[in-house]
Design a protein around this nucleic acid. Structure first.
Lengths: 203, 203
DNA sequence: TAACATATTGTTCTTCCGAACACATATTAA
DNA sequence: TTAATATGTGTTCGGAAGAACAATATGTTA
């Protein structure tokens, strides 16, 4: 269906696998030995066929220089650490240890290349009216909040996700759910990040 | 701050840039010439320093075999084509041409490796009660819908995003906004995909 | 000032690796 | 039948590329 023969598909699969495992492309001789070819030329022939069919791009004369076209077209990818959960409702502190990673291209997030970001898993439903749900992953950026931003804030010793509001020049935190009260800081209000994107995976 | 000297940071930046441009890592001699070193050994020394500081991993004896550790740890990344807009409200047909691409690791989406996916930009607010908003990007999978799934459907010649509901064994489409009516198919109901994830970028 | 890490140069050696050529054998389409 | 196309084998060549060794400078720190 894809225009590749069975053998060519096998070679391509091996290259993808090897590239994922090692981070580098196999050389023609590595392909030869993996498939048990008696001659390196066999591998070269398949690479040429794969190039002709657009499955790889080869940079002539250079070593291990096969490239998958989709990787060239791809926008730059950033790896955003996920720092556990954040309460959007109940009292609970956000954990500090890294809990996995989220990799996504920067153009889809619409953030600058330089942005310092992290991610949190939302627990609770105090932000549902802002369409942030329990289980969503919110992507936060380190920066100063503007009014109306959704922020991760440390308020009087607790970390929560709320809307940042100014009243008479004083900031407070607003829940987006009528069942939850607004939070006016008694002492200090530390903004840990501003929400720049949201990812929801199907349950 | 990161423990790298200025020169080492420059080398690392060049390697990242070259890797993004060409898809392959520069060789030690390419690094040498780019920086105008008189000797290739200079580049080798810097690579060794970068390896010692954990910025790259080198596979000994192999050509162009420096790897960025984050790329090794990263889960597999899929490229999801974005097929323009889909109405969630107004009558409007979804365009067919590819309109950019979304690259994200599969574990964050929670979908199987084999899933056939595409993405659509949501227009309209008929799904706000399901917390799908105007401007969101929804990631769809080609598969048969279950009741309650949010689906992209072609109903009587129009494509929309709605909840898939069964009533007396017959499927119809339900808007998640009281201002919009349910859609009962007059003739045919073709499901184009089931929503598996959602991405919202800050405006 | 001595010790040490970092940065740099010059040279040589070996291996890695792509490329090319000649030839063989199926399978498939015109 | 003829002509591609796909899949191989065996061999040779040369450039690409990593590695090692011997020096020299330049800071920075103790």
């Amino acid at each position: 269906m894809s225009g590749l023969t069975k053998r060519q598909q096998e070679i391509l699969d091996y290259m993808k696998m090897a590239h994922r495992e090692t981070g580098i492309m196999p050389s023609t001789r590595e392909i030869q030995h993996y498939f048990g070819f008696a001659s390196q030329t066999a591998a070269v022939g398949h690479l040429r066929a794969l190039e002709r069919k657009g499955m790889i791009v080869r940079l002539p004369g250079k070593a291990r220089a096969s490239v998958f076209p989709e990787e060239l077209e791809r926008a730059e990818i950033i790896d955003i650490p996920i720092y556990g959960n954040i309460a959007a409702g109940m009292a609970q502190d956000s954990e500090q240890q890294k809990d996995g990673c989220l990799s996504i291209d920067i153009t889809s997030l619409g953030i600058p290349h330089t942005a310092r970001t992290f991610a949190l898993k939302v627990r609770g439903d105090s932000m549902v009216n802002a369409h942030v749900c329990d289980g969503d992953t919110v992507i936060m950026e380190f920066r100063d909040p503007k009014r109306g931003d959704i922020v991760a804030a440390l308020i009087d010793g607790e970390t929560t996700l709320k809307t940042y509001v100014l009243k008479d020049g004083k900031p407070y935190l607003q829940a987006e759910n009528d069942d939850y009260p607004d939070l006016i800081p008694a002492r200090e209000l530390i903004i840990q990040g501003v929400m720049v994107a949201l990812l929801r995976a199907a349950a």
